[in-house]
Design a protein around this nucleic acid. Sequence first.
DNA 1: TTAATTTAGTTCGATATCGTACTATCGGAG
DNA 2: CTCCGATAGTACGATATCGAACTAAATTAA
Lengths: 149, 149
Amino acid sequence: MKPEDETNEVYRFFTEVGIINQLISTKLETFLPGRMTATQFGILGHLVRRPDGETPLQLSNAFQVPKTSMTHMLASLENHALITLETNPNDKRSKIARSTPQGTEFLRVCTEQMSEALYPLLSELGSDPFHSSLPNLMLIREALDQERD
Amino acid sequence: MKPEDETNEVYRFFTEVGIINQLISTKLETFLPGRMTATQFGILGHLVRRPDGETPLQLSNAFQVPKTSMTHMLASLENHALITLETNPNDKRSKIARSTPQGTEFLRVCTEQMSEALYPLLSELGSDPFHSSLPNLMLIREALDQERD
DNA sequence: TTAATTTAGTTCGATATCGTACTATCGGAG
DNA sequence: CTCCGATAGTACGATATCGAACTAAATTAA
């Protein structure tokens, strides 16, 4: 394949990623209350899986959003009583975000609704397209992540 | 594999897609002037490849963003003189967006810069991860797209 | 032909995002 | 201990996003 076509393929890859992200975020956001975004929901899921909590900075690295956006998202989740934000005893500059029981329950309910909504898609496609592309996506994500400095 | 693990894999797929989208958009946006977004840049690219132009509605379908967001994005591109917006002679409710020569040139320059910025990534990974996952991404995108109604 | 329905796009208002500049705290060098 | 550069998070302001309600044009029905 010509190098030019390879470059084109990379662009198409990123375009498809953008559209899939758009489609799935929109779909998810119809289940979420008010203006809660897919990213905010992702953060909640991340915290539910980590009972010791994480600092805002760790979260902004994990989701690759600016710290200033993270401040806003965490404040919003805290307003909904889905997480708590305490000062980090080891470093008073820092904080620790943790999921509340309501947060965990909220995640469970939304995830269930989302699974139902995705059921037709999974029956149609099967799990293979997801299964076989996941390792490549992880590879690309890690390389992009590494490069950023 | 258990059905439960399959579901988990699907979620990880969407998470990876979200993070890759975030990383690549941020990277691209550092090359773009002012507050121009990756989506707006994508729209310009779409129009450059279609000399006859497209209507705002076609564009909002292609990129899966609400019409009201498209209005804003097109207005912004028009302000930068990168596109023109004329009323559609076949349907006076409608409009046609077309790239201007400046738009085409602007796209060329930014694409070139982006290609240079992506060069290290491509050398490291090779084109295979992109090449082999693209068909699956297209499959998933088309299914999601179909479903939306 | 007129009236009702549908469709394309915009206006408006609420909220999300994020860059810049700031404050508070930490941790190392002397 | 004291200074100073680095680091965590926030305030603020500009702009992007997008749902709801609207206007105008096209299409369908009667």
